[in-house]
Nucleic acid binder design. Structure first.
Lengths: 110, 110
DNA sequence: AGGTATACCTATGTCACCAAGGTATGCCAG
DNA sequence: CTGGCATACCTTGGTGACATAGGTATACCT
């Protein structure tokens, strides 16, 4: 089922944004996305972790084992310089893109 | 290459919108999308035609051979009642979705 | 002791997308 | 009248993100 997507492509963007204030681990990134979008967007774990590895492999995130605030082991992801540049570029693209779609949909219609 | 996507999912929506004023053929739909979004979104033909068939198979579009204004043969696509309902629903979802992403990205950031 | 929340992971299947082809018609310029 | 361009349709093959559905382990709280 196509189901509840309409999601594709923005996951990377939101992940990059989530770590733009400092290193975070995957589970916290998922929580951040869910919370800041009021459950409109939910990153399934089966989608999130592969995405993190993908971004790390592309050099946009640094991956490192560490500890959470509560002392649990967790893999921390940090924005690289390249990742920050990518975030800026993709955010810009999102802005153009979403404005274009919204404009098209707003046309006085049917 | 991931290339210039950030597109996925909204194509169906824009197609439905494109025919919301009356029947149109594929080529004209592609032109409409490109023009109303000022080239921000371009529906490749290799993506557009399968999408049209998909929507027709789902009962959201009616497919019928006819003629263009200039007298050329073309396959005309018309919104079904179900298609119109889908358009409303997806437009609503887009609105929520894009607002959520934009809000998240606007957070005072880094 | 058991349940829940945290925290990570992979495997499989589906499906939209991209690139790159191909066919045919009509029009206009040279 | 012929060559090119715009119109108009199509398919095939590969890639890759996503959904689903599992799995492991630790910590905390009751």
């Amino acid at each position: 089922m196509p189901g509840s997507d309409l999601f594709t492509g923005t996951l990377d963007l939101l992940i990059l944004k989530a770590v733009s204030w400092g290193p975070r681990h995957g589970y916290a990134i998922a929580r951040w996305i869910r919370e800041t979008t009021a459950d409109v967007l939910v990153a399934q774990e089966g989608v999130l972790y592969p995405a993190l590895h993908r971004l790390a492999k592309r050099g946009l995130l640094d991956e490192e084992w560490g500890r959470t605030d509560t002392g649990r082991q967790a893999k921390l992801y940090a924005l690289t310089r390249q990742g920050r540049a990518q975030l800026r570029a993709e955010a810009e693209r999102w802005s153009e893109y979403s404005a274009a779609v919204t404009r098209a949909l707003a046309l006085s219609g049917f």
